[in-house]
């Protein structure tokens, strides 16, 4: 079983990102689950959401305490809360930040540097979507670095989840994810 924990702030689409991972994994024919760390979701407050992917049905309901993958949607959380709690030397970390890979140590994440991947998802979001909505963009990097979901299934998940919002939003999100995937 693979466990994913996403850290972000209220209003950044943290829960949506976890749901998209679960939908994409389901599209790949896997068993999956996604849920938020149910809170009173005030804009700007630190928020967590979780996803699980497995080859057999998932029964547990506990939060994700030992993540295989950590997604940090908002680098300003680093140093504010211990985002790495429960992670180990094999945990893959994806951080949305404008910092280059050479400055990875400055982020202060107490995990092996080789597992920490940096992507300026905010920049891609502003360029392509026109809004600071980096949650979907990071999923492109997630698919690339972890191979836990296929790009095709992620694309389908975006269409399923955002279909009601119109073709333009769907296409922009897919384009942004593609850019992050090939980053």
């Amino acid at each position: 079983m693979f466990q994913i924990r996403i850290h972000g702030r209220g209003g950044q689409g943290v829960v949506t990102a976890a749901e998209l991972i679960a939908i994409a994994a389901f599209n790949d024919g896997k068993h999956s689950q996604a849920f938020p760390s149910f809170g009173v979701e005030r804009t700007g407050a630190p928020i967590e959401a979780y996803a699980r992917i497995d080859n057999k049905p998932i029964r547990t309901r506990e939060h994700v305490y030992k993540p295989n993958v950590l997604i940090i949607q908002d680098a300003t959380l680093l140093g504010v809360i211990d985002v790495a709690h429960g992670a180990d030397k094999n945990t893959i970390v994806i951080v949305n930040t404008a910092k280059p890979e050479s400055q990875v140590k400055e982020l202060g994440i107490n995990l092996p540097g080789k597992n920490i991947h940096l992507i300026d998802a905010t920049k891609i979001a502003l360029e392509i979507i026109g809004k600071n909505l980096a949650n979907t963009v990071i999923l492109g990097a997630f698919a690339k670095t972890t191979s836990l979901v296929s790009f095709k299934s992620l694309e389908k998940a975006i269409k399923q989840k955002f279909g009601e919002k119109g073709e333009e939003i769907v296409n922009k999100n897919i384009k942004a994810i593609e850019k992050a995937y090939n980053f």
Binding site: A18, E19, A22, I23, F26, H31, S32, Q33, A34, F35, P36, F38, I58, R61
Partner: peptide
């Protein structure tokens, strides 16, 4: 509440 109502599952 939440555990089932707000969780994505098959």
């Amino acid at each position: 509440g939440f555990v089932l109502t707000h969780t994505y599952d098959s």
